[in-house]
C-alpha cells in the first residue's frame, strides 16, 4: 500500500473513533493534545487501526505513537 493511501485510511479511522471531521485532522496533529483523545480512545484507536489494516501491532510501541505522521510510518512498517 502506498503511503498516501495509508495516511488517508489513518485519518478516516481517527475521524470515526474520535467522532471528528477528517478535515480537522492535520498531518502533525497529536491524538491527545490536538485531537483530545483520552486514554480509552487511544486504546480504541490502536484496535481500530489493527482492524482497518488487518495487522497486529506491538502494544507498547503502538502506545508511544501519538501523531498522524507517526501512525502512518508505524503502520506502514507492518504492511
Amino acid at each position: 500500500m502506498e503511503l498516501p493511501e495509508v495516511k488517508k485510511k489513518v485519518k478516516k479511522t481517527i475521524a470515526k473513533v474520535l467522532e471528528i471531521e477528517e478535515s480537522e485532522i492535520s498531518d502533525n496533529a497529536n491524538f491527545i493534545f490536538d485531537l483530545g483523545a483520552d486514554s480509552m480512545q487511544s486504546m480504541l484507536l490502536i484496535a481500530a487501526f489493527e482492524e482497518e489494516f488487518d495487522i497486529e501491532m506491538e502494544l507498547e510501541k503502538a502506545q508511544e505513537v501519538q501523531t498522524i505522521n507517526g501512525a502512518v510510518e508505524f503502520i506502514n512498517s507492518y504492511l
Binding site: I32, S39, E64, Q66
Partner: peptide
C-alpha cells in the same frame, strides 16, 4: 491534567 506524554507541549 493531560497524560504525561503531552505535558511538555501543554
Amino acid at each position: 491534567v493531560f497524560p504525561s506524554s503531552v505535558c511538555d507541549r501543554a
